[in-house]
Structure formats: C-alpha cells, structure tokens
Design a protein around this nucleic acid. Sequence first.
DNA 1: TAGGCCATCTGGTCCT
DNA 2: AGGACCAGATGGCCTA
Length: 224
Amino acid sequence: MDRTYSDYDASSQMSFSPSDDEDCLSLQSPSPFSNGHLTSPTQTPEKCQEHKEEKKKRRGRSRVKNEAILHTIKKTRRVKANDRERNRMHNLNSALDELRSILPCFPDDTKLTKIETLRLAHNYIWALSETLRLADQCKDKPENNVMHPGYLSPAGPSSPGSDAGSWMSTASPSSSSFSVCTSNPSSPALSEDCFYGHTENMFSLHTMPQNLMQQHNTCYIQYQ
DNA sequence: TAGGCCATCTGGTCCT
DNA sequence: AGGACCAGATGGCCTA
C-alpha cells in the first residue's frame, strides 16, 4: 500500500539515526537542568560557554539534517509525480491506440503518428456526418436516387454543396491551401501535399463510403 | 546528419 | 494538501 506524502513526512522523522534522535531530544526536551539553560549551581562560566558553543554546533547540524530531510521529501514527491505523469501519458497513448484501431483501413505496418491519428479521426467523423446528411437528403428526395458526393472524388466536388476534398486527409489546416477544401468552412482542411503524399497511410477513397452504404442503407450514393 | 517523433522529467498552475 | 493537467526541456531512436 502506498504511503501518502504526509505519511512519508511522519515516517521520515523516524528514519533518524540514534544519534539524530539524541540530538533532537537534547534540543527539544527539557534537560535535567530544566528549560534549556543551565541552572546547576555546579556550572562554571567556562563550562557554560562550552555548553553554549556545543548547543550552537548542534543547532547547525540539526539545520543541515532538516534540509536533507526536506530534500528527501521533495525528491520522493517528485518521483511519485513523475510516476503519475508517466501513467497519465500511457493512458493517453492507450486511448490513441484505441482510436487508431477503429480508424478504418490504414496499413497495419505503418502506425499513424499522434497528430495524424487526431486529424484523420476528425476528418473521418466529418465524412460520416456528411454521408449521413446526404443520406437524409436522399430520403427526402427519392427521385434523386443518384448522388455523387464531391468528397469522394479526388478531382473535387461535383457541386458546391457536396464539397470538401477528402475526409481522409490528415493535413494541418494551416498547411498549403487546396481549392477543393475551401468551399465549406466546416469541412476538414486539406493540403495538396497531404492529399497526394500521405495516402499510403489512408484507406481507399472508396472504402469508407461503401461501408457506409452497407451500414446506413445509403444506396443512392454511387461512384464513378 | 538534420529533422521528426516520442518518452520522460520537471516546475508551474488549477482543481477538488 | 495532493492530484491532474499542461507546456517546456532533454535525450534517444529512426529515416530521408
């Protein structure tokens, strides 16, 4: 069972060597001569002076020991904080791994970086939402049974309303602009570099929508 | 070898 | 008071 810091503080006092205890006791507890100063009639002025110097030395030693104890306490707290921080980061990484595992179809041999994972997840969510939105539109207008959402085509949207390049991009929104992605401010940003350069980390353009068709009966969506 | 990514440590700040 | 969270620093590993 772990000790709390206060536990440690208390127990650390018990870790003194016997001589430490003796020093502390002699400084803190009443001496046979009472109240910490010499009242014995047998004390000479010389002995009194020696005793004062001895007390001064002991106080000095005690201060050094107290500083050492504080240092030890700080060090112990730091070690525990480091341990917690390590665990926290491990939990964060586990969550990222879970996220990676549900992002479809990236090659098993290449692990998405953290930033790629987050951006891909963002774009994936956006694409799912967009697909559902289009499916709802199709329900409302059954006569329009063929749709071509623009984000399914590398060439860009087929109409201004079905916009936005590719949801599979992991590019930074701050990276270079790509005309396809600028038509809808709510869509994930996309860079040309990413669109053409990082696709080895992504799944096929058509994979996700086909899955979605099966899952959501969005059978009106067709591909070229 | 430079640059990217990552794990870890660390001190500060906020929250309970 | 103690834990959670955060951001900066640092060093190791890998790749182009």
